[in-house]
Design a protein around this nucleic acid. Structure first.
Lengths: 136, 136
DNA sequence: CTAATATATGCGCATTGACGTATGTGTGGA
DNA sequence: TCCACACATACGTCAATGCGCATATATTAG
């Protein structure tokens, strides 16, 4: 399914879109299902889905199905250079105001899911579960 | 002329094209004039020029006129994150076979300009002059 | 089997990007 | 002043991309 040969052009092209950068920023070190992206970014679901497909075709994320939900996580690219660049990009995003706001909203959604009716029944992200909810 | 506000999307989009990566690889730490790109890459001059303009619009390179020649060099982006990513990208390119071949061809063109009639009279690159010709 | 939910994909449209070809612009030499 | 040279830009074309909207697919519940 996913492209076999890692493509440098495709890699950078995938990073050349703000929506996709926001998605990557939200995923971070965890595994997230699509409904969170839709809720946090406030964009129509097909748009989110297509951007995730783009990231997948570029070999930057992978998808795992769990029942009705699709979980996305960041994949370490086969090339060391690309891996370093991806990590550095994520570090860079972490310092951005708007990206921080996105992550804060995600934390809130995980800790207080009652305020996000669209997320009722949605599986919690992998790592955020502890990070976020143990802190309370 | 060049875009005032550094744009992250534009930055990555600029890196998402092999021709532009080859140009950046050729420039490296030096200053090169357009005729070298045309000669080494073997692409039509307008194509090279347009890609250089793209890189310039993305704030990745800057141009300096010296007589008839335009010298291009890599600019350090204003954002630390972007600067690191750009440097890492250049390091990554350095390890690529095809990119090494490009640089080798450039060295040859500088050391033996008599074999590259299109480069007669062209100003030598800034740093390659010593690096390449002192070694012989 | 049917319905509902979560997600993916098809379609039409507008924008951008890459390319070749032709032409414009700036500079120095005759 | 006119020409040659180095480079940039305009134009037309075609492919890729992004988007909204509608619809298809997969899975689970009933």
């Amino acid at each position: 399914m996913a492209k076999r040969t890692f493509n440098v052009e495709r890699f950078f092209q995938a990073l050349g879109d703000n929506t996709r950068l926001r998605l990557l920023n939200l995923i971070g070190e965890q595994e997230l299902c699509v409904c969170y992206f839709v809720e946090i970014l406030g964009h129509p679901q097909p748009k989110i889905s297509r951007h995730l497909a783009y990231l997948r075709s570029a070999g930057i994320v992978s998808a795992r199905r769990e029942g009705k939900w699709m979980h996305y996580r960041i994949v370490t690219p086969p090339h060391i250079g690309a891996a370093q660049i991806l990590r550095q990009t994520l570090d860079w995003l972490r310092e951005d105001r708007a990206m921080q706001a996105d992550r804060a909203k995600l934390s809130k959604a995980c800790c207080s899911p009652e305020k996000f009716t669209s997320l009722e029944g949605a599986p919690l992200p992998t790592a955020i579960t502890e990070v976020c909810c143990e802190a309370r």
